[in-house]
Amino acid sequence: MSMIDTSAQPTAKATEVTDPSGTSRRRRRRRRARVTEQAPQHLRAHLTAYLMITPMVVLLGIFVVWPLVYAFYLSFFEMSFYKDAEFVGFDFYKYVLTDPEFYDSLLVGLKFALMVVPTILVLALLLASFLATLSKRMAAFMKTTVYVPAVVSSVVAAIIFVFIYQDEGFANWFIGLFGQGPLAWLNTATTALPAVAVPAIWLGFGVSTLIMLAGILDIPESYFESAKLDGANFWQRTRYITIPSLRNVILFLLVSGLTLTIQEFQLPLVMTNGGPVNATNTPNLYIFNSFRDATPYATSYSLTAALLLFIVIGTISLIIFRVVSSEKSSDA
């Protein structure tokens, strides 16, 4: 069960090694302590550490903590151009939680995530299993190949796929081969969301594949060999060896994938801007578009919606992070 583990053991070792020697140094210094003063030396070590973390702390303080605190603050006030901001308590939270449009967007986000993430996981598992059988050179070529789409920006991907979904575009030619279509992909309520999901899958499958491949390569070769000797076919090996051994990796990819994908909004922003009839209006796109709504009410409202989403998603990612870290430390 070592596939999520690289750091745990060496980490523990490093701190163990550092600590005793650290104390012995201190002891050595203490012997000379009456001659040279210990305090300045000691202070200087702290000072170095503080200097090293200062840029990070200051930048995060200004550009993350301040906006976050400010967002919470604003969510309790009703802003207006005409009068002073008025404290309204949890009113906006109530509005958001009783607003059907917010739930509609959550549903769209959930549907979108359920189209994207399981597809990516299945694709990644199959690809990674295949890549693991390749020669070193071929595997290196394939790893780079599957990674290339991952670095393409969502804007470029969105533009490419809008082009593919044009009436005379590739997608309609392709389904035409099977006697179907043509479809107005992005203008039909039923096809728009799947059509936006395709570029999301394309952008996301590469990284998942590489992560799964690393996991598969960690499974002892002997498991697969003895299974082969017993006559297990590819599906049986996948079912009884690969998937159980990758349980943690798959779980991690599933949960982190869902939390990331439900937040996607750049693809629908460029491809459909939420339409048709809100079919692709993911939660963050809904929030983003209400940000741009000039009325002050909408601002506080969308801010609150974003915070509520953050609380849910932040909690989920914190839990994953915890689970993954504890897996690491319990692994040996």
């Binding site: 993350v64 974003a306 989403l309 990612s317 992070f321």
Partner: peptide, 11 residues
Amino acid sequence: MFVPAMAILLT
């Protein structure tokens, strides 16, 4: 790390 960009985008 756990703060999504959208939560602090406007502020």
